Amino acid sequence: KVILLEDVKGLGKKGDVVEVKDGYARNFLIPQGLAVEATKGNLKEL
């Protein structure tokens, strides 16, 4: 699961917690600054 930092077409809006494949999160969303891993600490910051 990841928390979206920006609106991502076809996935969700900023602040949404979405389930995506590990590779998509690690190789695209997180490096592009579009999402962060949905850890307990990150979820509390919402």
Rank of each mutant, 00 (worst) to 15 (best):
G41D: 15
T39D: 15
K9Y: 11
K1W: 05
D7L: 05
L5N: 03
G10F: 10
G23M: 13
L29I: 02
K21D: 15
D16E: 09
G23H: 12
A25F: 12
G23K: 11
E6L: 11
K14D: 02
T39A: 05
L43P: 05
L34A: 04
K21F: 13
G12L: 00
G23C: 14
L5E: 02
V36E: 08
N42K: 02
K21L: 12
T39K: 08
N27H: 13
P31I: 14
G12C: 01
L29T: 01
V20E: 02
T39E: 12
D16Y: 09
K1I: 12
K13P: 02
I3H: 04
L43M: 06
D7I: 04
Q32D: 06
I3C: 05
V17E: 07
Y24G: 03
V36A: 07
E6N: 12
Y24F: 13
K13V: 09
N27W: 13
E19R: 14
K13Q: 11
A38M: 04
K21S: 14
A25I: 09
R26H: 15
V8S: 02
P31T: 15
K21N: 13
Y24A: 04
G33Y: 06
G15E: 02
I3Q: 08
V2G: 01
I30S: 02
K21G: 11
V17I: 08
K40M: 15
G23W: 12
K14C: 06
E19M: 11
D7P: 09
V20T: 05
K13S: 11
D16I: 05
V18E: 01
Q32V: 08
K14E: 05
D7C: 08
K1Y: 09
E45W: 07
A35R: 01
L29V: 01
N27E: 14
V18Y: 03
P31F: 13
P31D: 15
G15K: 03
K13I: 10
A35C: 03
L11C: 06
E45C: 06
G12A: 03
K40Y: 15
V17A: 05
L46M: 08
R26V: 11
E19D: 13
E19K: 13
A35V: 05
L5C: 04
A25L: 10
G33S: 05
E45T: 03
L34T: 03
T39M: 04
D7W: 08
L5V: 08
L43I: 10
A38G: 09
G12Q: 00
Y24V: 11
N42E: 11
G12K: 00
K21A: 13
K40T: 15
K9V: 13
E37R: 07
N42P: 13
K44V: 14
L4E: 00
V17L: 05
E45Q: 06
L34I: 13
A25T: 04
V36L: 11
G23P: 10
Q32H: 10
D7K: 07
D22A: 09
N27A: 12
Q32P: 02
L43K: 04
I30P: 01
K14I: 09
Y24N: 03
G33T: 03
K14H: 06
G15H: 11
V17G: 02
N42D: 11
G33H: 10
K40L: 15
P31C: 08
A35I: 02
I30H: 02
L34M: 12
G12I: 00
E37S: 05
L34G: 01
V20L: 04
E6R: 14
K13H: 12
A25C: 04
A25K: 07
D16K: 06
V17M: 06
E37W: 14
I30E: 02
D16G: 05
A38D: 11
V2P: 00
F28P: 02
L46F: 13
K9P: 14
G41Y: 04
K9I: 12
A35G: 07
A38N: 08
A38V: 04
N42S: 04
L46H: 14
K44W: 13
D7R: 07
L4R: 00
V36M: 08
L46P: 14
A35E: 01
K21P: 13
V17K: 08
N42G: 05
K40F: 15
K13C: 08
K44P: 14
V17C: 06
A35M: 01
G41N: 15
T39S: 09
N42T: 05
G10N: 13
K21I: 10
N27C: 09
E37Q: 07
L43A: 03
V18D: 00
G10W: 11
L29Q: 00
E19V: 11
G23T: 12
K13R: 11
K1M: 13
I30C: 03
N42H: 05
L4G: 00
K13N: 12
V8A: 02
I3T: 06
G12Y: 00
V20K: 00
V17R: 05
L5A: 03
V18K: 06
V2C: 07
V17S: 06
A38Q: 03
E6G: 13
V20A: 03
L4H: 00
E45K: 03
Q32R: 12
D22N: 12
V20R: 01
T39C: 12
K1S: 15
L43Y: 09
K9N: 13
D7T: 10
K14T: 07
D22Q: 10
L11W: 05
L4C: 01
L11T: 05
R26C: 07
V17Y: 08
G41V: 11
V17P: 02
A35P: 01
V20M: 04
V17D: 02
G15R: 04
I3N: 01
A38T: 07
A25D: 12
V20Q: 01
E19I: 14
V18L: 12
D7H: 09
T39I: 04
K9F: 09
L5M: 10
E45P: 07
A38L: 05
V2T: 02
K9S: 12
L29M: 04
K1F: 12
A25S: 06
E37L: 08
I30G: 02
G33C: 05
V8F: 08
K9T: 12
L34R: 05
L43R: 02
L4D: 00
E37D: 07
G33M: 08
V2A: 02
K40H: 15
D22M: 09
A38E: 11
A35S: 02
D16A: 12
K21W: 12
I3R: 07
V36G: 03
P31R: 14
A25Y: 08
V20C: 13
K21M: 11
V36W: 06
I30T: 02
D16T: 15
R26D: 14
N42W: 04
L5D: 01
R26Q: 13
A35N: 01
V8P: 00
G15M: 05
L34W: 08
D16H: 07
L43T: 04
